[in-house]
């Protein structure tokens, strides 16, 4: 059995990527299962998805605690303790990260398995698809190549899964072209399955029943959600271009999360610890004073419309 775990942020397509891999494996004649897991969180919050496939019936269910391959759709998740990207990974686990940084650059401040690969999938999608986030087909294709599946079933799987999401045929075609490039950009890895040194132990807890008198949660600290920083959800950050803002307040008014405050000179100040990167301010700013810059890896800025 091969176990592949995907990590992404809600909306990036980790779940669909895992389905694409599962379907491609099934079409290749394997038994396969795929399932996502997410909490009550939404678009932008960490999610994981699991694909298992093999020649023999697979009895194991639920979360993959010891993955052979980990596919990470967003490099910022590596450092998000809530996402637990490396949990249960062993020294020989293959780690693929969607990042423009090199594996060595990532290793500089993180302890990672031996086999780490990076590709700037988001950059490729931006250039060739013009889409900002839906990289499911590309990640699915990369994962399928890493585990050694042929292209034809992968092509069929991408088509099926995107059709299922009512993606328009011309968009599916474009996705296939770019997915093939991503597929070709990596090599199948020799997978070592099972055994070996565990890098960080997986913690699985049995749910326990608490009576309502004890189990009902009470929060007595008002407004404490600010302790929970959602800045890591961003792929792009809104940045103020000096001299262009006319102080109209619209970014402040339309921000759903209330993370833009107007300073004494009526200029917006963004609370980057909490801004989720929805880009409403970038879209609504009448003078294009707010632009979106790609997180961490910098460079590409875009303005809406």
């Amino acid at each position: 059995m091969v176990a592949v775990r995907f990590h992404g942020r809600g909306g990036q397509g980790a779940k669909t990527a895992s389905r694409i891999l599962g379907t491609a494996a099934f079409l290749s004649g394997y038994v396969a299962q795929d399932s996502p897991i997410y909490g009550a969180e939404r678009r932008g919050a960490p999610v994981a998805a699991f694909t298992r496939f093999g020649r023999e019936p697979i009895r194991e269910r639920g979360a993959i605690t010891h993955p052979d391959v980990v596919v990470v759709a967003d490099a910022s998740l590596l450092e998000d303790p809530g996402a637990r990207v490396l949990e249960g990974a062993r020294a020989q686990t293959v780690l693929f990260v969607n990042s423009s940084l090199s594996p060595d650059a990532l290793r500089a401040h993180l302890s990672l398995p031996e086999q780490v690969m990076t590709r700037d999938v988001t950059g490729i999608a931006l250039q060739q698809l013009g889409q900002r986030e839906a990289i499911s087909a590309l990640l699915g294709a990369v994962a399928a190549r890493l585990v050694g599946l042929e292209w034809e079933p992968v092509r069929q799987a991408i088509t099926r899964e995107l059709e299922d999401l009512a993606v328009a045929p011309p968009v599916i075609e474009k996705n296939l072209t770019v997915a093939k490039q991503c597929y070709d950009s990596v090599e199948p890895t020799g997978l070592h399955k099972g055994g070996g040194q565990v890098i960080s132990a997986a913690a699985l807890h049995n749910p326990i029943y608490e009576p309502p008198t004890k189990g009902t949660a009470r929060i007595s600290a008002a407004g404490n959600s600010v302790l929970r920083e959602t800045g890591g959800w961003r792929t792009f950050r809104p940045v103020l271009v000096a001299g262009k803002c006319n102080g109209c307040w619209l970014c402040f008014v339309y921000c759903p999360d209330g993370v833009i405050a107007m300073n004494q000179d009526d200029r917006p100040v963004v609370d980057y610890a909490h801004c989720k990167g929805c880009q409403i301010c970038v879209h609504e700013c009448p003078t294009h004073a707010l632009v979106a810059e790609r997180e961490q890896e910098g460079g590409e800025a875009w303005t809406a419309k």
Partner: peptide, 23 residues
């Protein structure tokens, strides 16, 4: 200017419902 629904929520980025509630 004062905010009464504080950030750090788990609602989606760009949630229109939260936009209405905040106002």
């Amino acid at each position: 200017r004062e905010e009464h629904v504080l950030p750090g929520t788990a609602l989606c980025a760009g949630c229109g419902g939260l936009e209405a509630l905040r106002l």
